[in-house]
Design a protein around this nucleic acid. Structure first.
Length: 402
RNA sequence: GGAGAGAUGGCCGAGUAGGUUGAAGGCGAUCGCCUGCUAAGCGAUUAUACGGGCUAAUACCUGUAUCGAGGGUUCGAAUCCCUCUCUCUCCGCCA
């Protein structure tokens, strides 16, 4: 199908290019003849007809290319051979576990109850001010979220070698197409009326598109970027799922890791990127496991994905907190991001990777739940205390304030 | 938001009465020469993409396209017309 279209396009291209070649040379000839004062009427007439033909050919080719392009944009990426094959998440493969879920001598509360009792989260007023699936962070809750953002950014920039970017939080449709959100997933995003702008669902979009339409010198690779951004997701089709708490919001914060590298090392880079994200959970001493998504659970654009799942006591399960993927050249083709091989030669597509390092809302939820005490207070993880001005504990307010 | 100016090759910068301009000149870069070394000097080369041919080939030959983007006029457009985008200056506004 694709092959046939492509061949027909190429054939037509040859024909039209021959005609253009003739037009160019004859036009030049006409110029010369006119200068010499000779009659050129016949040639002009002939060229008029030829130009018309060329116009028709160009139109045909354009139509074929558009059709071809549409076909291409709707095709998902090919899964990597190392991932488990299966129809859905039941076939995902657990790679490893880290830490041991704490044994609570009391029934652990869900984070939204803790947050409301501590007066650091306010879902009700967010519902009034905006709507469902939004939250206010308040007092030490806001402080905790802010501390986590800085904590993550510092580790990734200082220890893991990522260069920080603060991206635009809106992007145009071309960028959304480049990373694979468009055209297929338009309903998952917030589109700004009367514009070509979308609120970003993840910093992956602006950061990956940073190098769109560029040819990078191979010496510059690999490129590592880390970016904090809020993320906006319409969560279409998620009615009734995770309706309470911070797990599934229309807006949440995230620190995102993005890599660009030559094809040869992209799987090595995926392991490193995943390990970088894991570091955050380890420093926060949050139990988690790493899962390799099966072919059926894999996203549209990814070739291989590791999910990091953090332990949430009130759920009694692990929940996704980071998703680390290798897109191979899928995004690079769409966004036309290439590199020139060190030895010279034709530009090749880079491989792109990204992963959350980490999603903030879920991290906050995990800290509240895993570090809760019987009286409803929260112990701040050791590693985070410098970012909290030395605060060790978030205690319930003496009197209910509002 | 109002008024004006502009967008040319890695960079700077020519080129508007449409016709060897893929594009002068300069800088930079590369190669060679020269020179005890360095500097200077001299010579040559110096865009990219996509096709076709020939191939071991990213080499070579050849075609097409590209002077912000898209469309139009014309036998022929960097040069004329329209639309859009972006940049700059002034005013207004604003964090």
């Amino acid at each position: 199908m694709y092959k046939r279209q492509d061949e027909s396009r190429r054939q037509k291209l040859v024909v039209v290019e021959q005609k253009k070649s003739r037009r160019n040379s004859v036009s030049e000839e006409i110029g010369r003849l006119k200068k010499a004062g000779q009659n050129t009427e016949d040639l002009v007439l002939e060229m008029r007809a030829l130009s018309q033909e060329i116009k028709e050919h160009d139109e045909e080719i354009r139509a074929i290319e558009e059709e071809l392009n549409n076909t291409l944009l709707a095709i998902p990426n090919l899964p990597h051979e190392s991932i488990p094959v299966g129809p859905d998440d039941s076939c995902n493969r657990e790679e490893r576990q880290w830490g041991t879920p704490r044994n609570f001598p009391f029934p652990p509360k869900p984070h939204w109850e803790l947050g409301e009792q501590l007066d650091i989260l306010d879902f009700e007023r967010a519902g009034k001010v905006t709507g469902t699936r939004f939250a206010f962070y308040k007092g030490l809750g806001a402080r905790l979220e802010r501390a986590l953002i800085n904590f993550m950014l510092d580790i990734h920039t200082n220890e893991h070698g990522y260069l920080e970017l603060i991206p635009p939080f809106m992007v145009n449709s071309q960028s959304m197409t480049g990373t694979g959100q468009l055209p297929k997933f338009a309903e998952d995003m917030f589109h700004l009326e009367n514009t070509d702008y979308y609120l970003i669902p993840t910093a992956e979009v602006p950061v990956t598109n940073f190098y769109r339409e560029e040819i990078l010198a191979e010496e510059r690779l690999p490129i590592y970027h880390v970016a904090y951004s809020p993320c906006f997701r319409a969560e279409a089709g998620a009615h009734g799922r995770d309706t309470r708490g911070l797990i599934r919001q229309h807006q949440f914060n995230k620190v995102e890791l993005v890599k660009f590298c030559p094809p040869a090392n992209s799987y090595e880079e995926l392991e490193k990127l995943t390990a970088n994200a894991e570091t955050i959970l380890q420093r926060l001493e949050l139990p988690y496991r790493v899962v390799c998504l099966s072919s059926g659970d894999l996203g549209f654009s990814a070739a291989k994905t590791y999910d990091l799942e953090v332990w949430l006591p009130s759920f009694g399960t692990y929940r996704e907190i980071s998703s680390c993927s290798n897109f191979e050249d899928f995004q690079a083709r769409r966004a036309n991001i290439r590199f020139r091989p060190a030895g010279g030669g034709k530009p090749e597509f880079v491989h792109t990777l990204n992963g959350s390092g980490l999603a903030l809302g879920r991290t906050t939820a995990a800290i509240l739940e895993n570090y809760q005490e019987e009286d409803g207070s929260i112990t701040i993880p050791q590693a985070l205390r410098p970012y909290m001005g030395g605060i060790e504990r978030i205690a319930p307010p003496k009197e209910a304030s509002s």
